[in-house]
Design a protein around this nucleic acid. Sequence first.
DNA 1: GTCTCACTGATACCAGGTCTCATAACCATG
DNA 2: CATGGTTATGAGACCTGGTATCAGTGAGAC
Lengths: 142, 142
Amino acid sequence: MSELESVIRQLEALDHRITPSRVAVIAAVLAQSGHFSVETIVHQARGVGRATVFRTMRLLTELDIVCRVLLEDASLHYRVSRRGHHHHLVCVSCGNVQDLDECAVSDLVRELAAATEYEIEGHWLEFYGRCAACRSSVALTT
Amino acid sequence: MSELESVIRQLEALDHRITPSRVAVIAAVLAQSGHFSVETIVHQARGVGRATVFRTMRLLTELDIVCRVLLEDASLHYRVSRRGHHHHLVCVSCGNVQDLDECAVSDLVRELAAATEYEIEGHWLEFYGRCAACRSSVALTT
DNA sequence: GTCTCACTGATACCAGGTCTCATAACCATG
DNA sequence: CATGGTTATGAGACCTGGTATCAGTGAGAC
């Protein structure tokens, strides 16, 4: 079963209609290799309205088929998701994204909850740096 | 020495001109109690142009006089800064912000750097929850 | 005083995203 | 297969947050 079919079945299972627009958006999303902006999908899923692309992206986010990637300038990108809660390490030079397997702050969330009496509901955690490849290419050119 | 004077001296010391517009923006910023959007300052520093407010906010950020607060929807707010690198715990109900003294992920950054061969340059970390006061008021009304 | 350059504000612009609304497609049911 | 209710669509207006442009100004060094 292709990835596309698999996603379509998930939608069906949750009583979402399978329409040509949705399929086009999902196919475009699955074709991306790294992280991407909604605008990229708007351009690549030609013929699908802007609003529909945004609506479909929201749907895919809710279903955990894509996840949001927060860039350093606070702009939102997306990325086909490995399931479950995790964080990213983004190369600011080539854009490569490393998924970090565990949520590194779950212990911290517990400590904070105890220390502050907040009920902690969520967090943002993203790391930025330069991957090994980009570091060595910089070293070569300087 | 008032806070305003102190900030003005910092600007002077770094060869930035002290202008009425800047003073108005800084005064408006210092008058905020929690976190605030640039738009708030645009409205409160009446007579100062939009662009100038944004420029001044950038300047204040660079000088570490304010810090950026990332909200859950990825929108940027600002807050008068305690100095140095730190993170926030934001109450999603009343907007109250708790500053977290230490950077909780500095150890993690080191581990990640070793494990991934990335040179890690930065990160976002913000927590969201409900403060004790908001939790109890919810408890009362439900 | 005057000269120069950083600074200013009006305004146009751009990006990212939502709202509206008439229309169309879907599909369960009689 | 006709019908009807719901869900989805796309065009486009709109909104928010932020930048670029550029002629004009005023701060402060001399």
